[in-house]
Amino acid sequence: MKHLLTATALAAVVSVAAAGSAVARDQIRIVGSSTVFPFSTAVAETFGKTSSFKAPVVESTGSGGGIKLFCAGVGTDHPDITNASRRIKNSEVEKCAANGVKEIVEVKIGYDGIAIGQSKAGADLKLTKKQIFLALAAKVPSGNSMVANPYKLWSDIDPSLPKTKIEVLGPPPTSGTRDAFVELVMREGAKAFPDIKKLGKKEFRAISDRMREDGAFIEAGENDNLIVQKLEANPVAVGIFGFSFLDQNADKIKGAEVEGVKPTFEAIADGSYKVSRSLYFYVKKAHVGVIPGIQEYVAEFTSEKAASDEGYLADKGLIPLPPADRNAMRKGATGLVPLKM
């Protein structure tokens, strides 16, 4: 028994000591958005298999969390690349620079559509952004004043809509999908009312960004698969989720028309379906040449094999950039042109 104890104690000491002298990293580290995660991982895997480098480690931390880690400093302890489902903010670039991360290369990889979907068994929905705002905002205009949202049925908003209960499952505020939905749909919908539009930025956002809390809008968690399952079980419910989940579950759920356009691959790619956002990743230029393979990874991500209409990322649900933008982006990315805000 004594031997066992000494042996385990020794093993503990040795393993800690071994880690203290951690060797230089030979593997790219990527953090960031959970929306970009499926694409980033697909590239990482292919990159690991087809190059002489190790497959990068990709963490899903959310866009904001990723940028925070990315901007923490230069050196092998910090990630080399961060994915983001929104553009990096000015304040974040400044924070980066303050920590010594001065040169950042921005790579735009494509678009992600946000679908408003429902079960195949439900009645077809044809919505406008104004109607979605009226269905989901906490406060809506009525006459000359703002009142707590009184709408219970879709047909209360507009008689052309089905006579079913408003029941919308959406992402929680921590999710990038929610941010994008608010920005692309709720704010646009609110702008349809001149009285709200002329408000100051703060008052406007207080109305446009607040979702109702009386049970008609349900925060269903970050897992889009869960939302899809709930839609299947409840034909009345409507869900808000990423396009790739609609694409994968086309036999069970259908997308609602927004402003007369259905969420399809083509409609998002040509820009006619408006509820879509750009996806990015950011590369720390100071790490290029220190951590092996960064340039090659960027080249793989922006290659036609990955990022074109027929690339493997399109199979995963990424909506690619138009060819001209793609070429310009590839040039900037492989040339590692730093970002200027």
């Binding site: 393993s15 071994a18 880690a19 951690a22 593997q27 953090v31 995660f37 980033s40 991982t41 990482a44 895997e45 690991g48 190790k54 497959a55 480690v57 990709v58 963490e59 899903s60």
Partner: peptide, 17 residues
């Protein structure tokens, strides 16, 4: 601590991701 990550390679030791 970053263990919720996509990792292709099977780890070979306690310091591998």
């Amino acid at each position: 601590i970053g263990m919720v990550a996509f990792i292709v390679n099977v780890p070979g030791g306690v310091t591998d991701p």
